[in-house]
Amino acid sequence: MHPNAQTLHRFYTAFSQLDHARMAACYAPEATFDDEAFSLQGREQVAGMWRMLCSASQKPGAAQHWKLEFSGIEADASGGRAHWQARYLFSATGRVVHNVVDGVFTFTPDGLIATHRDRFSFWRWARQALGAPGVLLGWSPSLKRKVRSTAAGNLKKFLAQG
């Protein structure tokens, strides 16, 4: 197995165990992360997001819903990919979400994640996470902007708390 594939395996194993510290250790200091909710620069922001999300999934009432499965890990010197599915309780609404995600990565020469881009159906996610508003507006750029803005604000508050 290529060392970069081992990095991805380490990352997703830690994610399945909600071990944000081991997840953060897989990223380079200047790493970037993008998905439908976040656009982050640097390991501090990326690690903070994973810490926030892992912490929410470990809370009483949420932990029973947490499950992550990953597959299709492929990587070489130039990049990598992985498929993962998470089941979790979306804390803002208390609704259970089953998110299906494909991740694409690049790596530093020393095998750390340099760029991480997760892609998933925002409309599918919004229907599950937000209920009726997600069903009606999950396709709209305005709802996506609102979710991104709320996520960024939540992360900023979380990081400020230490």
Rank of each mutant, 00 (worst) to 15 (best):
Q128T: 11
P3V: 15
S142R: 15
T106N: 03
S149L: 09
Q64C: 10
R95K: 12
C54G: 15
W125E: 02
T7N: 10
L136W: 13
I113S: 00
V96M: 08
P3H: 14
L40G: 03
H116G: 00
A151H: 03
R22V: 04
L68A: 11
S39C: 07
F122P: 01
L137K: 06
K156R: 10
A86L: 11
R127V: 13
Q64I: 06
A86H: 08
V97P: 12
Q17H: 10
M49C: 11
T13Y: 07
G72C: 05
P60L: 00
E36G: 12
T32W: 04
M49Q: 14
Q6K: 13
R10T: 11
A5S: 13
A63F: 10
I73F: 04
G72D: 10
P29W: 06
E30G: 07
A126N: 05
H98I: 12
V46D: 02
W84C: 01
A56N: 14
A37T: 08
G162H: 02
F15I: 04
V101I: 14
T150V: 11
G42A: 06
R148P: 00
Q64G: 15
A62Y: 07
G111N: 09
H116Y: 10
T106I: 01
S57P: 06
A63Y: 11
A92K: 13
S55E: 15
V104H: 13
A25N: 08
A21L: 15
R51F: 04
R43S: 00
D19S: 10
R145L: 12
Q58H: 14
S55W: 07
D34E: 11
D118L: 03
K157I: 07
K157D: 03
G131I: 06
H65T: 10
K156M: 05
L53K: 13
A62F: 05
P60C: 00
A114I: 04
A56E: 15
K146R: 12
E74H: 09
T106W: 00
A152N: 08
R117K: 09
G48L: 02
V104F: 13
F70C: 07
L155R: 09
V100C: 09
A77M: 05
W125C: 01
A160W: 06
H83A: 07
R43F: 01
P141R: 14
G94E: 05
D19T: 12
R10Y: 05
R95S: 08
G48E: 01
P3L: 15
A14C: 08
Y27I: 04
S149F: 05
A126Q: 03
A47I: 08
F15V: 03
E74M: 02
H9V: 11
F105V: 02
L8W: 10
V100G: 04
S78E: 10
G103F: 02
V135W: 10
F158D: 00
P141Y: 10
